[in-house]
Design a protein around this nucleic acid. Structure first.
Length: 611
RNA sequence: GUCUGGGUAGUUCAAUGGAUAGAACGGAGGUUUCCUAAACCUUUGAUCUGGGUUCGAUUCCCAGCCUGGAUACCA
């Protein structure tokens, strides 16, 4: 049992024994003691004042403290300040804890068995008409990290991805490729497939814009659209002009051909999508992430349509006069939601229903987590109700892991304004920065080894930067300033780990060595603080899993690394002559290194042994 | 309009209802006879406004201001 829990149980017993009053677990708040005060853990006694009838919190705290010292072996001494009961834990209890952590190779991780709950996590979910950008990076890293954390919390995890491979957007790229790209392939163009297709999309948009402008200025039909409100008039004219654009009409015609399974269109579609997948795979590989099962919208949207029609027959949905199919959620406080257009084609929501069906066929899912931006909060609120109505047992409890946008200093990224930060470019530039910062520290390594380390460090900085922020908040990325390698950063934590590895190397300790310490060894305040933080790790992981928050792991890892750096700076380890003290510090270092490594793995960040 | 997030040092981020609101970057200054100076130390500086609940509010409730997002046939 954890020290905090033992203490909390002790306090409950103390109150029961002293005042014959039952208090609940929630009333006992235990937290680390602030640095200014003596003690390790602090219990708030204010909450017990009513039940115990005590008027004076100091008196109450003192009585509980006396009882704890007399009855709880792990409590050494205590002091009371106002209503804060500061408890000092016995040194031997800390040492026991440290030894337990040292000898447990999977410390902090819950076991996963055949009968563990099955959690499916969807993330990335790209469109296939353009390369991945910074926003996708946040999504993918959160999804990957979350799946690691859920596994660490004792769940079986299936990582999944839904690829939005059909629709008007890919038709635009296909059309542009036919018209202006002269049969270019990724090989002939010398660029990744996703980037080539992205270029096509941009080309389409450029020509399309020009067309619309031309029509707006010269077309008499458009000029005839008049509205008293100038804003509304402009909107209406623009919509009419866009619909009238020959390019757009061609794209729509292509989409219809695609839906009719026209062989030529399908062949082109398949070829171009393959290029994109190859490009994405390269990006995923570079990031160090992957999936267990990938779904494609082109395979799932028809399934969704079937389910909707089935639901319609069972009276779960209704049809409007124009033939469109809707779900009514006015009883649940929401609106009506379109499920099938009047022409019978499916919408975004329909596709998600079909995907859910296939997933449930493939896996006995207990919990489904969708990692999708907060712009889709409403969509997932509706999807949850919809799946529940269709009888998916996890529908009601599906988790929309909603995260904020990555913004630039002037606002959000806009592809139209060319302010999108490309994922591949950003990663390459981070790795390059790492190379420059490193100097000649790794001069004795082979070029291959060096590149591996630079890649770990550069990506570590990027990943940590994106993961340390609370997911619900929007975050700001300034492309003009490179991501830091100093301070509260991934490399700082990696550096601490590398440094510990160096110490252990010099002490002649490797994975097979076993350190031992005597329980009577003296333990300093800094050492005790470090052990306390190590003990916290298990709880931090569980909490991060419960609250779906990789940021808590990130902040914990930084805190631990910072604490160790201070310890390192004013404590000698290798030069320590007292063998017991030396072994204690080495054992502590080994534990810190392992916990850092585990925590960083939960974030999807590697830690090199040298840097 | 309606619904829904967010508002904390100059900047980027923290803070299960608890003690003097923490870090980092930036600014100013300092530390290498010892294990990696990507480090360490000192200093500078903030809770949008007004009410309420509470022994105690950045945190919970109400109102207002600022700001992001959604709002039904795009995904």
């Amino acid at each position: 049992m954890e020290i905090e829990q033992q203490l909390a149980a002790g306090v409950i017993a103390a109150v029961k024994s002293l005042y014959d009053v039952e208090i609940s677990e929630e009333m006992v708040q235990v937290s680390p003691t602030r640095k200014e005060f003596e003690g390790h853990l602090t219990v708030m006694v204010f909450p017990f004042m009513k039940q115990t009838g005590k008027r004076n919190p100091v008196e109450l705290g003192t009585e509980i403290g006396d009882w704890l010292v007399a009855n709880l072996p792990l409590v050494g001494k205590f002091n009371v300040v106002k209503g804060f009961l500061n408890i000092s834990i016995n040194a031997s209890s800390w040492l026991d804890k440290l030894q337990a952590i040292y000898s447990n190779n999977s410390y902090g991780l819950q076991p996963v068995t055949e009968s563990s709950p099955l959690v499916m996590i969807e993330y990335s979910s790209p469109n296939t008409n353009k390369p991945l950008h910074l926003g996708h990076l946040r999504n993918i890293l959160l999804g990957w990290s979350l799946s690691q954390i859920m596994e660490a919390c004792g769940n079986r995890v299936v990582k999944t991805n839904i690829v939005n491979d059909r629709g008007i957007h890919i038709c635009k790229s296909m059309l542009a490729w036919q018209k202006w790209f002269d049969g270019a392939t990724p090989e002939s163009a010398g660029k990744k497939g996703d980037h080539l297709i992205g270029d096509c999309y941009v080309a389409f948009d450029k020509h399309f814009k020009a067309e619309v402008k031309e029509i707006l200025e010269n077309d008499p039909e458009i000029q005839a659209i008049v509205n008293d409100d100038p804003e509304k008039q402009a909107e209406a004219r623009k919509a009419a002009a866009e619909a009238k654009s020959p390019l757009m009409q061609e794209a729509r015609a292509m989409l219809r051909k695609w839906e009719a399974a026209d062989p030529d269109v399908r062949a082109l579609w398949a070829k171009m999508n393959e290029w994109v997948y190859a490009g994405f795979d390269e990006t995923y590989k570079q990031m160090g992430v992957g999936f267990d099962k990938i779904y494609y919208e082109s395979n799932t949207y028809l399934e969704g349509k079937d389910l909707v029609l089935e639901g319609l027959e069972q009276g779960k949905f209704f049809r409007k006069d124009d033939g469109s199919v809707w779900a009514d959620f006015t009883n649940e406080g929401l609106d009506q939601k379109l499920l099938l257009r009047k022409d019978g084609t499916s919408v975004y929501m329909t596709q998600d229903i079909g995907t859910a069906k296939l997933r449930y066929q493939d896996f006995p899912i207990d919990k489904m987590i969708y990692v999708v931006g907060n712009e889709q909060n409403y969509h997932f609120q509706v999807l949850s109700l919809l799946l529940d109505r269709l009888g998916f047992k996890w529908g009601k409890d599906l988790v929309h892991f909603s995260y904020g946008m990555v913004e630039l200093p002037n606002g959000r990224m806009k592809s139209r304004e060319g302010t999108v930060v490309d994922a591949d470019d950003l990663m390459a530039s981070m790795i390059n920065d790492a190379r420059e910062v490193s100097g000649d520290r790794l001069a004795d390594m082979s070029d291959e080894e060096k590149e591996r380390v630079f890649s770990i460090i550069g990506l570590g900085a990027l990943k940590y930067f994106l993961l340390k922020v609370n997911p619900v908040n929007n975050m700001v990325f300034n492309p003009a300033e490179s991501i830091d390698f100093n301070g509260n950063t991934g490399p700082f934590i990696q550096y601490t780990h590398a440094r510990i590895c160096s110490i252990l190397r010099k002490a002649g300790i490797d994975a097979s060595s076993t350190l031992t310490i005597d329980n009577s060894v003296e333990i300093s305040e800094k050492e005790q603080t470090l052990i306390q933080k190590l003990v916290d790790f298990e709880g931090v992981v569980l909490r991060a899993g419960k609250e779906y928050s990789p940021a808590q792991i990130a902040n914990y890892a930084y805190d631990l690394a910072k604490e160790y750096n201070q310890f390192y700076h004013d404590t000698s380890i290798l030069k320590e002559e007292d063998e017991q003290k030396r072994n204690l510090r080495l054992m502590l270092s080994a534990c810190v290194a392992r916990v850092i490594k585990t925590a960083m793995r939960l974030l999807g960040i590697d830690v090199p042994e040298r840097m």
